[in-house]
């Protein structure tokens, strides 16, 4: 190419769709500072407090007789609630995207409903339906299957607050992908299950994983709904509830050690989520792309 030096413009050209560099750097600085105060500072505070008495103390407090059952319960709840949610999400997304029926928009609104209900109100609803003072609740207790103040209630509350997560990720992806591939598989003689397992599932696996990830993060961290349903029973105490107990009993370091464990899980979730958004953007719903 020719020598360009003689034509170097005197003033740097700014594309008409860009802000002035000064404005740009001021905005970046403001956003960075604000996120540092609002998001990074609390995160750092958790780990600083958790390790205030050293690694060993923190580690020990997690494996204490008091803490361990809570960790176990949280894992159990997530292990039941998340697959339930995934199954519901897949079934609902299949029903909504593969069939045409009246009231589809209303059904989607109902599925989204838990997002706009306070977790405390969600817990309250479950207590009012299955509590020992109700007919159903009394019958279940009499038959040795109490729901409220026990594992089933906590699972139910957890499924409630995480209800839309998987379905919401799957529905847009399955709408985008259409029905042609499934129809092709059916004309080739594949059974319904085979079509689902070999055609649909591979297409939606990353979106499914994304939904499961969000659902799991919320399931392990839910506080309000579970607090109401567990009734503060020692046998029905999950990790977030245990954090509150430790905190109120002035065992700050232990509370923060457990908080640190949950914060670590949250960071792991974010990491996986970012990885999915970058590596499998094409197979996620449109709003999850384009970073």
């Amino acid at each position: 190419m020719s020598d360009l030096s003689h034509a170097t413009p005197a003033r740097r050209f700014r594309a008409p769709t860009e802000e002035a560099p000064l404005a740009r750097w001021l905005l970046i600085g403001f956003v960075t500072l604000a996120l540092a105060v609002l998001v990074f500072a609390p995160l750092i505070a958790i780990f600083v407090e958790a390790l205030s008495k050293g690694w060993e103390a923190a580690w020990k407090s997690l494996f204490s007789r008091e803490a361990l059952p809570a960790i176990k319960l949280t894992l159990t709840v997530a292990a039941i609630a998340v697959p339930l949610n995934a199954a519901f999400g897949i079934a609902a997304a299949w029903f909504i995207t593969k069939f045409d029926f009246r009231g589809k928009a209303f059904l989607i609104t109902l599925i989204d409903l838990p997002f706009s209900v306070s977790p405390v109100v969600a817990g309250l609803c479950i207590v009012l339906l299955f509590g020992a003072n109700t007919a159903i609740g009394a019958w279940l207790v009499a038959h040795g299957f109490p729901i409220v103040f026990a594992l089933p209630g906590i699972v139910l509350a957890t499924v409630f607050v995480t209800f839309p997560f998987v379905a919401r990720e799957l529905i847009p992806v399955m709408i985008e992908q259409g029905r042609a591939e499934e129809e092709a598989a059916l004309t080739l003689g594949a059974s319904g299950w085979r079509t689902f397992l070999t055609v649909t599932l591979p297409n939606i696996r990353w979106a499914l994983l994304y939904g499961v990830l969000l659902s799991n993060a919320r399931a392990m961290g839910e506080f309000g709904a579970v607090a109401v349903v567990s009734g503060r029973r020692e046998s029905a105490t999950t990790m977030p509830l245990k954090i509150e107990m430790f905190y109120n009993e002035y065992q700050g370091a232990t509370a923060f050690a457990m908080a640190g464990l949950l914060a670590f899980l949250a960071l792991l979730t974010l990491l996986l989520k970012t990885w999915l958004e970058n590596r499998h953007a094409g197979e996620l719903s449109a709003n999850r792309r384009g970073h």
Binding site: S2, L4, A7, P9, A10, R11, F13, A15
Partner: peptide
């Protein structure tokens, strides 16, 4: 909308590149 890497644009004989 774009700036040339080199060269000039003239409107009625006057340099309009900038």
């Amino acid at each position: 909308l774009e700036f040339p890497t080199s060269g000039r644009v003239l409107f009625d004989g006057q340099d309009a590149t900038g």
